[in-house]
Design a protein around this nucleic acid. Structure first.
Lengths: 116, 116
DNA sequence: ATCAACAGTAGAGTATAGTCTATGGTTGAG
DNA sequence: CTCAACCATAGACTATACTCTACTGTTGAT
């Protein structure tokens, strides 16, 4: 698919996709044997990857942390053991973040109680 | 206490406190009857408020959302009913955020499983 | 053939949340 | 008395993550 379709399916702007491409999180493929233009082609894996980025972002990860996750998951630069290590560290971060959110909920619930 | 002590107790820089003051999240008191200088004085309530800001931030709230929470909690501009409404909306947001984090955890756990 | 709608690149601009610098006044230990 | 350490204000600078603009090339329907 072309960038416009990818953008629509993922629910982000083409600008954002370009930005992620420049950042190195995503890359379409150009196949000169198939098309004469210089349009990029994005497959389903690209979409899955973009959706991972979006989800990780709403999970509070920064783009550089997401780059780490993507390198661990899609890249060949790490061994299986290292990949697991990186991903397990992210799980720890997520658990901490969940704990913080629970604290915040508790705090707000106390505020509500005091109003009554 | 003076700003330096407040900063140390809360674990942020004095610059950050100044920034929050400019933003309207926090304000020390100046009492010309007590001191001739123009130093601000911060009490325990200020510290509690600053800690609330820090916690809310790590809970993923933006400063403008935090301003809303603080106005609901410390301000006189809302009725008890409105205050409760605002705080309960924040609880909903927190629950959504926790759900997103759980999804992200699930996703990462699946990645780890696939490595094995 | 042409014209809107889309593709590409490069680079400027924006919002959020700080962080730092410059300048000048205040305080307290020695 | 003085000097380091602190206080205040204003404004410049930075990082992150977009978002938009300018410009040019391509495609497809009429």
């Amino acid at each position: 698919m072309l960038i416009n379709e990818l953008a629509k399916r993922a629910g982000v702007s083409t600008h954002t996709i370009r930005f992620y491409e420049r950042y190195g999180l995503l890359q379409g493929k150009r196949d000169p044997s198939k098309t004469s233009n210089n349009y990029f082609d994005y497959d389903e894996e690209c979409l899955a990857r973009l959706e991972l980025i979006i989800d990780a972002k709403s999970g509070g990860f920064t783009l550089s942390e997401i780059a780490e996750i993507i390198d661990a998951w899609y890249g060949d630069i790490y061994t299986a053991k290292q990949k697991r290590q990186i991903l397990e560290n992210k799980l720890v971060v997520l658990d901490q973040r969940i704990a913080e959110l629970r604290d915040m909920k508790k705090r707000i619930r106390e505020c509500i109680k005091e109003i009554e």
